[in-house]
Amino acid sequence: MAVYTKIKTDELINFLKLYDLDELISWQGIAEGVENSNFFIETKSDKYILTIYEKRVAKTDLPFFLNLMGHLNSNQFPCPKPIFNIKGKLLNSIQDKPAALFSFLNGSSVKNPSIHHCYQAGSYLSIIHKKSSSFSMKRKNKLSAEGWKELFLKLDNRINSIDRDLFSIITEEFKYISNNWPENLPSGIIHADLFPDNVFFEDNDISGVIDFYFACNDFLAYDIAIAINAWCFNDTNNLEIHKSAALLNGYQQFRSLDKIEKQKFPILVRGAALRFLLTRTYDSIHLVDGALVKPKNPIEFLDKLKYIRNISSFEEYINDKS
């Protein structure tokens, strides 16, 4: 979550008149995240999240995202519920930008996930895959192997100010991963951004999953690979195998990976690291002036990628010998 669009109280009050809500008590911007502008809204009787869509989120994709969250919510998955306005619409606008209102989820994210947190993250990821299998809408992953090329072509030697070898490493990895990316793995709807800051816990158990704005159709195992990158590395960006094993075991509690998925898993994890290295590098040199936002450090994923490219088997992610 983040704030790019700054709004005034009277603008918010006029927006909320579109909904059947109680009187506004308080509101504030939420600084975390990099994609959209988000605000915490409190009325006399309830709490909500207002999201204003911008940057990489295309308006044509919004029906997919909103209806997916509605589908999951109606199937008892703990995610934000899109709120219909008094005219039966999910999507409205503020300052000529699309905007939507959501139910508020209790809980908070964890900064340093434990083995238990990783196991739960894996199990809830498989539940997303299972419960979304009956969702009929589809969306292509614009940030999978094909989409990386567009970002790659927008980078140049300027990024070596971040790390002197960054451009050469990204070039090398882009070529290798593109040439070795798998085909025809089990596919479905994936979250594609299941980082710890997108998962809320209460009493050490998951209470909600947020930020479905990268959700799309792609390889299910690629979603797990993203989660490995997000949950299972320590502060020095080395893999903690007991955490990756917990996440994989949690996932396979509900869906077992097949032989080909396991065979291709190392390249999927490597590709996931490259994906976030590319987007974080791009964002770090294309900052929005005046935005209340905290850009994320690309060096984290450069270090992870250097580690991951030395892993050649699925077993190295799941066989905890400690």
Rank of each mutant, 00 (worst) to 15 (best):
H129K: 00
K87D: 13
M137G: 02
S45L: 08
D96K: 09
G147V: 10
P63H: 00
P82R: 02
H117M: 12
I52A: 06
F64K: 00
H117D: 15
L90V: 05
F65W: 07
I86A: 11
K138G: 01
S126P: 13
S74T: 04
I49G: 07
E42L: 14
P113I: 09
F77E: 03
A100N: 03
C118A: 07
K59D: 03
S133P: 13
L151N: 01
N106H: 14
L62M: 12
M69W: 06
K89A: 01
I128H: 09
C118Y: 12
N73G: 08
L66S: 00
L50P: 14
S74R: 00
K97N: 06
K44C: 06
A100E: 05
S108M: 09
I83L: 02
G147E: 06
K81V: 02
I52N: 06
K140G: 03
F65S: 01
Q76F: 05
N75L: 06
N73K: 09
V57I: 15
Y53G: 00
Y53M: 02
G122F: 13
K97L: 05
S109C: 05
F135M: 00
S109H: 07
K44S: 12
C118M: 08
T51A: 06
K140M: 06
K81P: 04
N106W: 09
L125H: 15
N38V: 13
A99I: 13
F39C: 11
Y119D: 13
A145R: 07
S114W: 13
S114M: 13
E54S: 15
L153P: 08
E146I: 11
K87R: 10
N38R: 07
L151Y: 10
K55A: 13
Y48L: 13
I49Q: 04
F135D: 02
S93K: 11
S136D: 07
L105H: 03
H116N: 08
I94C: 03
E146V: 07
L90A: 01
N75I: 05
P82H: 03
R56D: 05
P113F: 14
A121P: 08
E54H: 13
L151H: 03
F135Y: 01
K87H: 09
F135H: 01
S134C: 05
T60A: 13
K131N: 10
L151P: 07
L50C: 15
C79Y: 03
S74L: 08
F77T: 00
F84V: 04
S123N: 05
H116R: 03
V110F: 08
N92K: 04
Y119T: 06
P80R: 01
D96G: 10
S144N: 07
K44F: 11
K111V: 14
S108T: 08
S93Q: 14
I94S: 03
S103Y: 05
F39V: 11
S108R: 07
I49F: 09
Q95Y: 11
A100T: 01
D46E: 01
I94N: 06
T60G: 12
N85L: 06
K130I: 10
V57M: 07
S134D: 12
I115A: 15
L153F: 10
L72I: 02
N106D: 15
C118S: 11
